[in-house]
């Protein structure tokens, strides 16, 4: 259920503004890849270009190739909606649907697409996804209550459950723990560790320890100046990046001697 992603010479634009330039990256299946770098260097932008969420913003577009399983996501006749069903995304801020209950939120990917699902299958999917997101025990008694009544950390895990309920191949996470307390953060990190068995995971984080803890490979993005495009400076095994990076900029950033 997990796929290799090959990014080749990817330039990402917001209208005339080139936000990210020339990314080359190969993401292995069943691995966790962390993206780090200073604010504004284009991590979120790059992440969103991996499931064609980037072009949702008016005027935004990409040039280059993102190959998944031999198919170029930006090739002709590729349906962005289909891409997003295969490559799910968890956002920085938890965003459960306010009009839906906890169970409906988990089933959102099915229900919103007007797919019919048997009651028993639906119950099973809800339980499986919530267990997968480490949330089942906390909410099993109030599945019909609104999702917005959960704590921030629970909401974020609900969003993860919602994402894995559509059974994607890849899960993209944009700073999923930035609004969470250390305990919820650890819960999500454990979850990432478990999800790795089935999914390819790409996670953006500002937390070095988190990147070091959860990821197999790390990519360091940097920006040379204001208004300049961000670039992937170094991409290697996490251990290498954190202990013995090739680039001076990477070392400076990781050791906190940045800027």
């Amino acid at each position: 259920m997990s796929k290799r992603i090959d990014v080749h010479d990817l330039d990402i634009y917001y209208g005339k503004f080139k936000a990210v330039q020339g990314v080359e990256m190969t993401i292995e299946p069943r691995s966790v890849t962390a993206l780090i770098g200073p604010s504004g260097c284009g991590k979120s932008t790059f992440l969103r270009s991996l499931n064609r969420m980037h072009e949702v913003i008016p005027g935004a577009y990409c040039e280059g190739e993102v190959m998944v399983d031999g198919v170029n996501l930006y090739g002709k006749n590729v349906d962005p909606v289909g891409v997003r069903r295969k490559i799910g995304m968890v956002f920085q801020r938890p965003n459960p649907f306010p009009t839906m209950s906890i169970a409906e939120n988990v089933l959102a990917g099915v229900k919103l697409n007007n797919q019919r699902i048997k009651k028993s299958d639906a119950d099973e999917l809800v339980e499986k996804s919530l267990r997968g997101a480490n949330l089942w025990n906390e909410v099993k008694d109030r599945l019909d209550k609104p999702g917005s009544g959960l704590s921030g950390g629970q909401q974020q895990r609900l969003c993860i459950a919602r994402t894995i309920a559509v059974k994607p191949d890849v899960v993209l996470m944009d700073e999923p723990c930035s609004a969470l307390d250390p305990i919820s953060t650890l819960a999500i990190e454990d979850l990432i560790e478990e999800l790795k068995a089935d999914y390819t995971i790409v996670i953006v984080t500002h937390n070095m320890q988190q990147a070091a803890r959860v990821s197999d490979k790390t990519g360091f993005f940097n920006i040379t100046g204001i208004g300049k495009p961000g670039q992937l400076v170094e991409y290697d095994a996490t251990e290498k990046i954190f202990n013995n990076p090739n680039e001076k900029a990477t070392e400076d950033y990781i050791s906190g001697r940045f800027g």
Partner: peptide, 25 residues
């Protein structure tokens, strides 16, 4: 906008996002 993006990210087409997420909200 986050709700629209959350819906798109689940692979929901635009017209269903509007009719089933935006309008009910």
């Amino acid at each position: 906008n986050e709700l629209r993006e959350a819906s798109y990210a689940l692979g929901v087409p635009k017209w269903l996002t509007i009719s089933k997420v935006v309008l009910p909200t």
